[in-house]
């Protein structure tokens, strides 16, 4: 189960491979490393970077998917964020938004807070939980060969779908997108709605 650290998938490489094919998709990232990674590999006004509210990334994605049914929504969330909001997978499965894809960046720990082990390091299998919550399609990427299938899986399958990328610790430092909350909303809404009003 535990591969040597240097043989594990690198989170920004995985994410860059997926987001290169994003087209006009909207992305939502969980606080911490997922937000830094999204900003590092695919900075765009169509990114909703979260800075707080751990556990709610998938729920934010669901609200956005319902509001923007003609665009693909990619939720990029850490394993800790997904575990904290695990019930939201059942909510999403019940609503069945065809345009919603979830990528779980699973480093099996809490990297932001010092690398403590997370629940997916023990017995929890997030892809299996998603299946039990009602997701019809899930996949787990453990190596480069699996990772090469992620973009196709996340962008082309009918949602909701969930993929888990088992990654190593981040070797890249944090890069920070805008930390002004109202400004983040203004930028995103202006890009998506053509509406700069509050």
């Amino acid at each position: 189960m535990t591969a040597p650290e240097d043989s594990k998938l690198k989170r920004r490489e995985v994410l860059a491979g997926i987001l290169a094919a994003r087209g006009d998709a909207l992305a939502v990232s969980s606080l911490g490393t997922s937000t830094y990674d999204l900003f590092a590999v695919s900075p765009a006004p169509e990114n909703a970077y979260l800075w707080n509210a751990m556990g709610l990334t998938a729920s934010v994605g669901l609200g956005l998917a319902i509001a923007q049914p003609d665009r693909r929504i990619l939720v990029i969330a850490g394993d800790g964020d997904v575990m904290m909001g695990i019930g939201s997978l059942s909510v999403i499965a019940a609503q069945a938004p065809e345009n919603l894809s979830i990528l779980v960046i699973d480093n099996e720990g809490f990297e932001e807070t010092g690398g403590q082990a997370g629940l997916s390091a023990f017995r929890a299998d997030i892809a299996e939980i998603a299946r039990g919550s009602g997701f019809r399609e899930t996949m787990v990427a453990r190596d480069e060969k699996d990772a090469a299938r992620l973009a196709d899986f996340l962008w082309r399958r009918t949602g909701p779908v969930l993929a888990v990328a088992k990654v190593g610790a981040s070797s890249d430092g944090p890069v920070y997108p805008c930390m002004d909350g109202p400004e983040l909303v203004r930028i995103f809404r202006a890009a998506v709605l053509g509406d700069a009003s509050p």
Binding site: L26, A48, L56, A58, S59, V60, L64, A67, V185, D195
Partner: peptide, 12 residues
């Protein structure tokens, strides 16, 4: 609360 934010970002 999370859904309300996502929906608002998308104009709903």
């Amino acid at each position: 609360v999370g859904m309300a934010y996502g929906a608002w970002l998308g104009g709903t």
